[in-house]
């Protein structure tokens, strides 16, 4: 009975994908690092839910935007599953970014019309 994911994560899902892809632009990272990075960068504004992070990572892998590989972490001497951005993923990031911009612009125009006119 694992059908609930899409409904709940629908709105966030798009942005989460984008955030993950953007994070991976710095280089390969494992799930924990990605989550921590997003959390830190937004000053803990975005609390990373692992419940959506891992499904999202696997979804991205399934679509071919990231690939994964078990590699030893330089500081831990232990293997982690590292995710790496693919070329397809890079293109997707550009697409999502521009969509997000359009979306943000559109919302801004409705919310602060005066600012727009001046």
């Amino acid at each position: 009975m694992a059908k609930q994911t899409p409904e709940r994560a629908n709105l966030l899902q798009g942005t989460l994908d984008m955030l993950i892809l953007r994070t991976l632009l710095y280089g390969p990272a494992h799930g924990h690092q990605i989550g921590k990075h997003i959390q830190r960068t937004t000053n803990d504004f975005l609390q990373m839910q692992h419940g959506s992070l891992y499904p999202a990572l696997h979804r991205l892998e399934r679509r071919g935007w990231v690939t994964s590989k078990w590699e030893t972490a330089p500081d831990r001497n232990r293997e982690f599953k590292y995710y790496r951005l693919t070329d397809k993923g890079r293109k997707q990031l550009v697409v999502e970014e521009s969509q997000w911009k359009q979306m943000a612009d559109a919302v801004a125009r409705v919310m602060w019309p005066a600012a727009e006119e001046s």
Partner: peptide
């Protein structure tokens, strides 16, 4: 982290 079994289920569902 949250409930690992739930995460496992949901990740599983992705596939």
């Amino acid at each position: 982290f949250g409930n690992p079994s739930v995460i496992r289920e949901q990740t599983h569902a992705v596939w």
